[in-house]
Design a protein around this nucleic acid. Structure first.
Lengths: 277, 277
DNA sequence: TCTCTATGGTCCATATCATGGACCTATTGG
DNA sequence: CCAATAGGTCCATGATATGGACCATAGAGA
């Protein structure tokens, strides 16, 4: 048969729930355009009234909704909220904590996770290393225009040119006032240099003597979802040390990217439980 | 915490699905720590074997997981995937974050993004400003009938008259019980006033002294897809301040609308054409 | 050491609940 | 106009989900 949902044994007294979940995932996979009733009937291998009844229940809960004119079924707001909640465990923040701890431990300096929010970068986490002289320029929660700071610049450089221009247009008014050392022209330059080098370097532009290096973390579609970075005082981020730390950053970014692609992997505890797929 | 999830008339033949969804949302709301079996039993008002059986089904599907040592239940990887998929349909969220941050920053109060779901409005995001007295009446994930709250009222007023009546007919039973200060007649009045003024005003109707102003965000077809709003304590939303903030709201709503029109990067995941074979 | 209690988890006879064949109602297109 | 396709609903039937009773394990206290 096709996808066949309920063949797998062990399920006592949960037939309708299994079907409901299967339909929910089918609707999700149909994408933003939504799925048609007949498609779902075919894909699930169930009777039409059954599918319809389940869809009604899912609609009542807000997990899916039906477009009034096309009659197609799509994911609803509650599914979105659920994803937001699951973020706490499977989002880039949770998945990056190990990486940040390793980076801070190995380098002795301070490691950061930033994410993009529109034309801005927000620092989500700051992990301090052992070295006693620390820069406190960037704190968790701080928000700066894309391009301002190493991680922030790494994300900007990872965007398409059109998006770079859009971001610069949005934040341009702030250069000159709040960020006097920056300008759209300078950032275009730095984006080019970042792309060429493969990593972003902030040579004390936000605060003199406070340097940083950063690399982007990309999602499945190749677009940046965040950045890992390391900050230290200037003489601890000379060229030689950059050559040493950048591979570490890149390796950790790769790990985070891989973890993001397959949220199912870790937690070996429940290993064998539902291996079949 | 009697949370009462399936509030209105239960439909036939979906009892177990309703229960499964209710438990899923309860697990989600428990946060990253997870929920204990006994908590879920109490919150759902169900028998323990029933809860356990449903949880097993949800675990089999990957929507939730059980921690091996604490025995607590948490959201699973599939919930995260679901959220990622739903993301595509709620692009307005990502596109509005900038706007919300600016609104909260400039006003000092709390800014919200709401979207419509049938006859209801769902709050997707809440961005707090600097002012220390904050109203916590509306949280991300909250759902209220269209018309209840500033953003919600803005969306209702942006609908065609026939749709307004349809929405009011759906939610009328709730007025008088859950929303005693509201009625279909009052909302018709408020819709008219909202259309005349160009923005929605909630003068503390949901919670005394908690005021709000909101404007709709419209899609390409002119129909509302969401709303931006600002909430604050009464004396911070007097007429003078409304005249100051409403243009900001409108400007931000316009920006979001323009961003929505742009085709944006089509996610190439068209693979969802659900393989029949 | 042995209760005692709270919590997590399972069993299985029963009747409640989900099932799907049959049917109805748009909408499309020839 | 009819035929064909799709979305949607009804309701008799028995398979399915239910929950009282029970078991297992971990701490707390005597």
């Amino acid at each position: 048969m096709i996808d066949d949902i309920g063949q797998d044994g062990a399920a006592a007294g949960t037939q309708s729930i299994d079907r409901a979940v299967a339909l929910l995932l089918l609707v999700g996979r149909a994408g933003p355009e939504g799925a048609r009733l007949s498609e779902l009937v075919a894909a699930a291998g169930l009777a039409k009234p059954t599918v319809r009844r389940v869809l009604l229940a899912l609609m009542r809960s807000g997990l899916i909704e039906q477009d009034g004119t096309s009659r197609r079924y799509q994911l609803g707001p509650e599914a979105y909220v659920l994803g937001t909640l699951a973020n706490a465990r499977f989002g880039i923040h949770a998945l990056s904590l190990d990486a940040l701890a390793r980076l801070a431990g190995v380098s002795g300096d301070t490691a950061f996770l930033s994410v993009r929010r529109g034309a801005y970068a927000v620092c989500l986490h700051r992990e301090e290393g052992a070295f006693p002289i620390r820069t406190h320029v960037l704190q968790a929660g701080d928000r700066h225009p894309l391009g301002v700071g190493a991680g922030s610049l790494a994300m900007l450089a990872a965007l398409a040119d059109a998006e770079v221009e859009e971001a610069l247009a949005t934040t341009a008014p702030l250069f000159g006032s709040r960020y006097p050392l920056f300008s759209a022209g300078l950032l275009r330059d730095m984006v080019a240099r970042t792309r060429a080098a493969g990593y972003a370097l902030n040579p004390g532009l936000v605060m003199a003597a406070s340097w940083g290096i950063g690399v982007a973390v990309r999602g499945a579609d190749g677009r940046p979802v965040g950045a890992l970075s390391i900050a230290a005082i200037e003489h601890r981020l000379g060229e030689a040390r950059q050559r040493e730390l950048v591979p570490l950053l890149m390796a950790e970014a790769l790990r985070v990217e891989q973890a993001l692609q397959r949220p199912a992997a870790e937690t070996g505890a429940r290993a064998a439980r539902h291996s079949r797929r």
